[in-house]
Amino acid sequence: MDKLILYLQYPFVRYALIVGVLIALCSSLLGVTLVLKRFSFIGDGLSHVAFGAMAIAAVLQLTNEMVIILPVTVISAVLLLRTGKNARIQGDAAIAMVSVGALAFGYLLMNVFSTSPNLSGDVCSTLFGSTSILTLTQTEVWVCVVLSVAVVLIFLFFYNRIFAVTFDEDFSRAAGTRADAYNLMIAVVIAVIIVLAMNLVGSLLISALVIFPALSAMRVFNSFRSVTVCSAILSVVSAFFGIVLSILAGTPVGSTIVAVDVAVFLVCYAVGAAKGGFRK
């Protein structure tokens, strides 16, 4: 405990906690929609695209990597959503192609052009986010705060529409809701969340951050609202304890958070099973 208080004196630890909690909150909000709409693969694909974009940014030696990563990821989100709908090109296959391709190119670029002496360290930290959360500048913290607040506001404002479009797209469309516009919005928000979350857990572990809290909450609760609230709480709590644990134990931040998420999921699974018999 003393050690924790000591660490909290350092601004970088406070930054990490603030940013971590905000990112966890955002990523959990759309988790339910993502899981139910079978969009989770899009999340996975996008995180790899973000990795590729990061590599390009690194090669160009940009000071603010967001300038490249954010637009590239958002555009990919829109494109992936399009192909996912197209019955002729298999949506899954397209996503797999893009995501593996982006990974390969990203690594290739970094390898060929990198001037860094510790290449594998760099790659590892982009993939697993080992240190970036602890090296945030004040500007990065502010960007993160602003984007997170925007995501939360958008989610609250469109909560009812997001529910309706997720539950039954055809019905919403027949009732005059512009479902395509909302799908697009969801995809863009997911892209933003992924770019944010890269700082926290690295690109390989983002899906876990998005999906685990939603799956955990779905085990225990029965209405969309309670599932959403619960997954937000679970996600924030897991991220907080994950970060604290990793600081105290000296483990990598991203994987510790995900490990906590997994543990929470197992508990929820057991609770759900005990509560209502076994649901598939």
Binding site: L36, N160, A164, F167, D168, A175, F221, N222, F224, R225
Partner: peptide, 22 residues
């Protein structure tokens, strides 16, 4: 009925109310 709806966590109230969105 679609596949998505089969394991959707939503209460009856929420679903019926969503009919009002138009």
């Amino acid at each position: 009925q679609t596949l998505v709806q089969r394991d959707f966590p939503a209460s009856v109230k929420e679903i019926v109310l969503s009919g009002c969105q138009g």
